[in-house]
Design a protein around this nucleic acid. Structure first.
Lengths: 177, 177
DNA sequence: ACCCGCATGTAAGCCGTTACATGATTTC
DNA sequence: GAAATCATGTAACGGCTTACATGCGGGT
């Protein structure tokens, strides 16, 4: 169960409310790391609070509660990070689609690859803005490592899609239809 | 629910038994596209057979059944592939860990990054072997697109980890400790 | 006043994991 | 004939999605 550690990790950077954490997932995390909805995040925060890993450090209008890490929470995050993970288990629907391309006639496949490349270009541009400042100090802030990873990932996605389009084309010359 | 489409896609390439499909997931698919266990695959195959999307095309010892796509199954796969997907929902524990690195003291972070880079190198080497032949004909076979994607992904992973290690070091000089 | 966005919550049902379970065939 | 591997299955439980639900606060 990685959701709780994702939450602990985000709160290690700075205290936040469930609403704000939900926005972080929606805006960035879900694109290349982890996906979660508010209906999962709120109960999990309450559970973490019950277990003493996070605690309410502030409150505002509309029943807003800001959570921060406790010492136990920080210890648990650290423990999880340094424990060697098992074999990787990935679920990525975009990539799955690309792997099943060969089931399509070349023209359809080509159209999908172009869409995939275009998505890569679009997200890369967004992330380049987010990244912004890349001075040594700024890069240590949370989100800078992530943004750089995303940038490289989506650039790779574009390049691969272009390679695949070329491969399709070459094969088309060799055995048309 | 992408599992059924993963199965349909694999069966579009060639007929296979549940056991063989499980091995494909274990050997390659789960590393960068989709993860599933036999306990999920067998019931899903039975469901797909009930719905007429796949059918038993052969049987062997030990109650082994080989499944193939029906016309309905091929149509469903095609429909799914050409339907534009919603916003991407990714779950990747390795990447999540890397995003939460800044919660660790630099030495621990560096150790994790080195492990991450090493994993990239190891998997890249494995995939380079799988890829093998890259003639235009071979590249159209299922697994060639996938292997190339994996190759580039894990190379990117290494390069990013090296970048992050350098960034940590530079920051260490700027504000030691 | 009204509307939109903020902010949190819950319940039903599906998807996925872990564990348990069984028997057949091949290999040594 | 013992052990390893092939081959499939199921049940309980926990994670996740979808949908429904509620109310406050700020802006116009």
């Amino acid at each position: 169960m990685s959701l709780r550690h994702a939450l602990l990790g985000l709160l290690a950077e700075q205290p936040a409310s469930g609403y704000e954490l939900t926005q972080v997932f929606e805006a960035s995390l879900q694109r290349f790391a982890w996906h979660a909805r508010h209906s999962q995040i709120y109960p999990e925060l309450n559970k973490l609070a019950d277990e003493g890993l996070v605690t309410v450090v502030g409150s505002g209008a509309r029943n807003r509660r800001t959570y921060g890490l406790t010492d136990d929470g920080r210890a648990e995050l650290h423990r999880w990070l340094v424990t060697p993970p098992g074999p990787p288990h990935v679920r990525n629907e975009s990539v799955l689609r690309m792997f099943l391309l060969t089931a399509l006639p070349p023209d359809d496949a080509r159209a999908l690859l172009e869409r995939f490349a275009e998505e890569g270009a679009r997200v890369e541009a967004t992330l380049a803005e987010i990244r912004g400042d890349d001075s040594p100090e700024a890069v240590l802030e949370f989100g800078q490592f992530a943004a750089e990873f995303g940038l490289r990932y989506f650039r790779m996605q574009q390049e691969w899609a272009q390679w695949a389009i070329d491969a399709l084309e070459k094969a088309g010359h060799t055995r048309p239809g």
